[in-house]
Amino acid sequence: MTVAVHDSHILEGVPRSRSVFQRNLNLIRELSITAFKLKYTGSALGYVWSLVKPLMLFGIMLLVFSILLKAGLGQWEFPIQLLVAIVAWTFFTEATTNAMNAIAGSGDLIRKAYFPRWILVASSMTSALLTFTINTALVLIVTFALGQLDLTWLSLLAILYYLELVVLILGLSLLLSSLFVFFRDLGHIWEIVSLVLFYGSAVVIPFQTVWDHSKKLAYLAGVNPIAQIITDLRHVLIDPAKVRSMASFIGPLEVVPILLTIGIFLLGFAVFHRLTPRFAESL
């Protein structure tokens, strides 16, 4: 008896890349592309929704503050301040909310396949970052075209502040994603904390307004990283002459939010590292 051998009968293996870094990077890319794709397939407007949501928030806040409350915010370029803040804030909430479920929602993967677990957090963050990057680019292009932005060499500092935001979110994501596996109340707690942060970080009002209202309150709000990042982003992007930086308000205390960001990142890293071996058994 002769056995016919098709060429489709044998599938030779491909050698894997030696570099673990490259493998991990590739996995992050594939996972975040998948998440990004899945989020927008099937809906008619697709990606447009990611733009509509922050714009809606922007529109409502603009209406409430500048028209209904007649807060006299005009002198600090209120609309553009609001827009820069809301895009950054949307990234923050979307990324942390996604991250909450990054581990707990991947039980099947974690129980049945091995890969470094932080990749799940990194890829959930990356897909939020992708949305954020596109939105930021769009907002910057449109507002720059409208003459709302006064871009100078100083504006390049924005990259550093965005980086600070990413580090902060990464730290929080590591912390939230790992703790949520063992402690499901965290989802609700985080919603409340987010709400407090939203109003406590002067997202919807210029920091100057808080400062003029109460110095004590301004110091309290100013040491939180979100307020500092948003205020400094406004400073370097909009008009350094008109919109003050955080350092100009709280002085050397500006290091506090930066240290806090680094602290949260290190804490998140440590907690995640500590809890990783227990994920597979607990999910």
């Binding site: 491909v14 894997r16 890349s17 590739n26 890319r29 594939e30 890969f115």
Partner: peptide, 9 residues
């Protein structure tokens, strides 16, 4: 990618 192979490979 889960196995450690890149898109190019």
């Amino acid at each position: 990618a889960m196995l450690g192979l890149t898109r190019a490979q």
